[in-house]
Design a protein around this nucleic acid. Structure first.
Lengths: 236, 236
DNA sequence: GAGTGGTCTAGACCACTCA
DNA sequence: GAGTGGTCTAGACCACTCA
């Protein structure tokens, strides 16, 4: 682990166990640098990560403060699903029901999002993910067969992300997401076990490899009464 | 403007006008440092901002690449509404219809989110924001009267954020948001002019001042067929 | 082995806040 | 004026990628 990660972790610990009171600023950067025997830039880097996590708040000329709401941590769920469900819900029992699995030519929309032409085939997968026996999400995913090869029913019953990383040796680095409310459809009623007039929280996502190439275009549909999406925004 | 902001802007320009081809890496950090006559750390800082905007992608030992999807920029809307609608939609005609405006004791939920006790009064405001003649969003907002004083109908017809900044001299720095799909209610049918079985995209938000103190707790409800929320995620 | 980005240093000067 | 965080420098060493 890097110095700045180690320091961020330690400061986070001190915030949570109230070694640092939320009434006063935490120690200034120069003191922290001397305590941890690192340069001030490294302290700054460590605190940067805590600021972006929403735990700290800096005020030039004044100090670095603990965000008051740190203590009521949200219960939410849908936040880093892009690492793959298998990763996010580690330790829970995850099952997948394959609703559709075929290869097709991409629609114009799919081709545009995956940055491929209309003649490059894509996998089309619809899966219901079941967590601890409860229907969790319906995922509709498109992946270029050329880039993401070797998808089988067996892979689909496990983790596609693991297959991409470990079998194909590719690195997933980022995703662009669009979140919307949607009317529920027959598929939702049947598999998410939701009411006919229940809405659905849909997350549209394009996932990118470290090469900058998109590897998946997907739509994840969640029950409106069980899932929310959370973010921290910071004005600069 | 700082050096790193200026450089980020210039590099962004070169990406968009294709001075840098998306097939090759952009120039390495040492070359950029020498071109802009700054240190490598400053280049790094400039590129950091473009990486977090989703335009660039770094690969250690290899180079810095343009994310292919840069060229199809999304049309979306709900992304930085926290700066206040008046700010985000600058130049457009924004009207506000005040549906409710009163002072009340906070519910347990409101008190907890605003970090106040049950005896501290809060403003309770429900506004319909109308942009270019179209209903845009219904906002239900709670603000502690002690912290955010001087709210009047006149302020509510303009920008509350402007009031907070310019009249009260407070600095808004961040917000925590929860996004969900919700069933529409009578209020939505009436004011958002949506169908009885249309869902609504709701954003729950706690806004923070630079002191770390929450100043508003709000719920913004948008038509599901006109609004989406977008984010960029990056795995570290 | 040459070239790349990642981390880190030990300083400097500055802008801002508060007393 | 003392104390704080913000920006920036000119280097160093390292881990990783590719040929």
């Amino acid at each position: 682990m890097n110095k700045y990660e180690r320091i961020a972790q330690e400061v986070k610990k001190r915030i949570i166990d109230k070694t640092y009171s939320s009434d006063d600023p935490i120690p200034d950067e120069i003191s922290l640098a001397s305590e941890f025997r690192v340069s001030r830039m490294t302290i700054k880097r460590a605190l940067d990560t805590l600021v972006s996590e929403g735990l700290l708040n800096r005020k030039r000329g004044h100090g670095t403060f603990i965000v008051k709401s740190v203590y009521n941590v949200p219960v939410n769920v849908v936040v880093n699903e892009m690492l793959g469900l298998t990763n996010v819900l580690r330790g829970k029992e995850i099952k997948s029901k394959i609703i559709a699995f075929d290869v097709q030519f991409p629609s114009e929309e799919v081709a545009a999002h995956l940055f491929i032409d209309a003649n490059s085939p894509v996998y089309h997968v619809v899966r219901l993910r079941i967590v601890e026996g409860e229907p969790y999400v319906i995922e509709r995913t498109y992946m270029p067969t050329k880039l993401i090869s070797g998808i089988t029913e067996q892979v689909l019953h496990g983790s596609v992300y693991k297959h991409i990383k470990e079998e194909l040796g590719l690195n997933i680095v980022s995703s662009h997401r669009t979140i919307r409310a949607s009317k529920s459809t027959e598929l939702d009623w049947e598999y998410l076990d939701c009411g006919v007039d229940d809405p659905v929280l849909e997350i549209e996502q394009v996932g990118y490899l470290d090469t900058g190439i998109p590897f998946e275009y997907s739509f994840s549909r969640h029950r409106y009464d069980k899932f929310v999406f959370t973010t921290v925004n910071r004005i600069r």
